[in-house]
Write a protein that binds this DNA or RNA. Structure first.
Length: 546
DNA sequence: AAAGAGTGCAACCGCCTGGGC
DNA sequence: TGCCCAGGCGGTTGCACTCTT
């Protein structure tokens, strides 16, 4: 390549006068032993030194390279250079169609396990695959295409593979773009951890629900979550995730977002560089959102009480204080999720993918909203629990999002039109998406309530384990008491799946039917839901069922 | 032709793990 | 048991190159 040619020419020029010349501080680092080590691009002379060393001594003991050859490179750098560029049998050039297909499959199964993927691609390095994948993400995103081709989806979800790679019919959450929503990582890790203990976990089928939820929501680099480095990856895991109090949803499925309280959501959004619009509400806009998730029977005893912070605590002037964070598409999408109380029957999805994403899809994918909704928030307030179908009054707080985010749609706003997700076609193909429908309606006279639970979880809280569910899981209901109650008869089961399908798309619900088909014992399913997933900090809780 | 944006890739960085002591 | 070190891995960055306006 031209760049390489140019580089090599420069290398030769540099090599001659490098030794003995002054060390540029920017190009050299002093090692722990006080040795100056070079950084930056490798020269051909350095390559030669390294190749000769490996020929003579074999791979490994990379730190010895510097000692034995005088090569001013750290061991890590040597290993990387060798592995990625110098070792024999390296295949260079663009990936073939077969390789691309294989990478898709591997990624669907393994996630961002580049080294493991590279093991299946002779001559390719993990770095190469990683770069390819990131590039692919960009391209697919730009093109508005789903990250995974349909055939890969099919193959992966059904445990098929063109290369014989079969991960036991399991799909790594990375398949669901885990880095975009790191909780899946924790979920999967949790499940993995429990596979030995819980035989039915080992039989866990495809997490297609997740895939459907997140399909098309790609690139860690192009979402607010995805911006996360490994550090904020952890941060997310450690974060308390506020969820919506669906007990506030009326029987028509409308969410009165006039119940927002405490600063949890604020903090949460802040943790992603977001500005919680909830705290921009003026004094008149009572907010008392419950970050809880429970099946409510009128007794929300398990709900953690919140202290409402004065709205003035987060003045509207903060609206512009997005800092330097990139646009937070999630929140933007949450906006759509939240602000869309329109009855689903009236909505036509503008999503094109056959893989509807359900809850998270709707959360993660924004849907264009008429600007007419602007400023609705300040004109509307609470008491939306009495909202009737067709009303948007129940979206008072939602419209607050609407308003503020639309107001933010200026060049400096993270929610401006430059948001990359604005360009991304939503992928919801059916109407179960939560941006079109509040996620829970009443079931057996109960409504589902998201309930905040203390993120500090200890084994001592075992009594609560069975009620601790991760709402982010599409199948969280399986772990609830409610499932046990619902599973008693076909009608209840149907209701159960109906409710579940509100969080999932149809296929996902079907998957979960299949999953639970072999686990007919409600207590087992319940245990599955409650134990296998609760090694992670609980995010929500399901309270008693009426 | 020039400037800015976009793209792709090599290399670096930080974290984790396992082995040796 | 704890510390140190080497190696491995995944995420991120920097920069040369290409494309677009």
């Amino acid at each position: 390549m031209m760049r390489r040619m140019k580089k090599e020419i420069e290398d030769e020029m540099l090599d001659d006068d490098r030794i003995g010349s002054e060390f540029n501080d920017e190009e050299y680092d002093r090692s722990a032993r006080g040795v100056l080590l070079k950084k930056g691009p490798w020269t051909s002379a350095e390559d030669d030194i390294l190749v000769n060393y490996v020929k003579k001594n074999g791979e490994g003991n990379w730190n010895a390279v510097q000692k034995q050859t005088g090569l001013l490179r750290c061991g890590k750098s040597c290993r990387l250079r060798w592995a990625n560029h110098l070792r024999p049998n390296l295949k260079k050039g663009t990936f073939t169609a077969e390789e691309e297909q294989l990478i898709c499959e591997l990624h669907a199964k393994l996630g961002n396990k580049w080294a493991r993927m590279a093991a299946h691609l002779p001559g390719r390095t993990d770095n190469e695959i990683k770069n390819y994948w990131n590039t692919r993400i960009k391209r697919r995103h730009r093109a508005g295409l789903p990250l995974y081709p349909p055939e890969v989806l099919q193959q992966t979800l059904h445990g098929q593979s063109t290369d014989g790679i079969n991960s036991g019919n399991k799909v790594h959450p990375d398949f669901l773009q885990k880095k975009n929503f790191d909780i899946h990582d924790a979920i999967y890790d949790c499940m993995k951890d429990n596979q030995g203990m819980l035989p039915y976990v080992a039989e866990l089928p495809d997490i297609s629900a997740y895939s459907n939820m997140l399909n098309g929501f790609d690139s860690s680099q192009y979402s607010s979550f995805g911006q996360s480095t490994s550090s904020n990856h952890k941060h997310f895991r450690d974060s308390t995730i506020p969820f919506l109090d669906f007990s506030c949803i009326d029987r028509n499925g409308y969410y009165p977002f006039d119940h927002i309280q405490d600063d949890t959501f604020y903090k949460w959004t802040q943790s992603f560089g977001m500005q919680s619009p909830l705290h921009h509400a003026g004094p008149s806009s009572h907010s008392s959102m419950c970050y809880s998730h429970s099946l409510k029977n009128g007794n929300s005893s398990t709900s953690k009480p919140f202290e409402e912070l004065p709205s003035i605590q987060y003045p509207e002037t903060d609206l512009g204080s997005w800092g330097t964070s990139p646009p937070p598409p999630l929140l933007e999408s949450v906006d759509d999720f939240i602000k869309s109380p329109t009855p689903i029957s009236t909505l036509e999805s503008d999503c094109s993918s056959p893989q509807n994403s359900g809850l998270l899809q709707s959360v993660l994918y924004p849907r264009k909203t008429p600007s007419s909704s602007k400023n609705q928030f300040y004109g509307k307030s609470s008491n939306s629990s009495t909202a009737t179908p067709g009303e948007r009054a129940d979206s008072s707080a939602l419209n607050m999002y609407d308003t503020e985010w639309e107001e933010s749609a200026d060049p400096v706003s993270p929610f401006g039109t430059s948001s990359i997700l604005n360009e991304c076609p939503a992928v919801s193909a059916n109407r179960s998406s939560l941006d079109e429908q509040p996620p829970v309606h009443t079931v057996n006279g109960n409504t589902v309530k998201l309930e905040y639970v203390d993120p500090v979880w200890t084994p001592d809280s075992g009594n609560q384990i069975t009620s601790l569910l991760n709402f982010s899981r599409p199948d969280f209901l399986l772990g609830s008491d409610w499932y046990e109650q619902c599973s008693g008869n076909d009608q209840n089961q149907s209701i159960f799946y109906d409710a579940t399908s509100m969080f999932l798309e149809d296929q996902s619900a079907t998957d979960y039917k299949h999953m639970t088909a072999g686990t007919s014992n409600p207590s087992q399913v319940r245990e599955f839901g409650s134990c296998a997933w609760n090694n992670m900090p609980p995010v929500c809780q399901v309270s008693d069922l009426g």
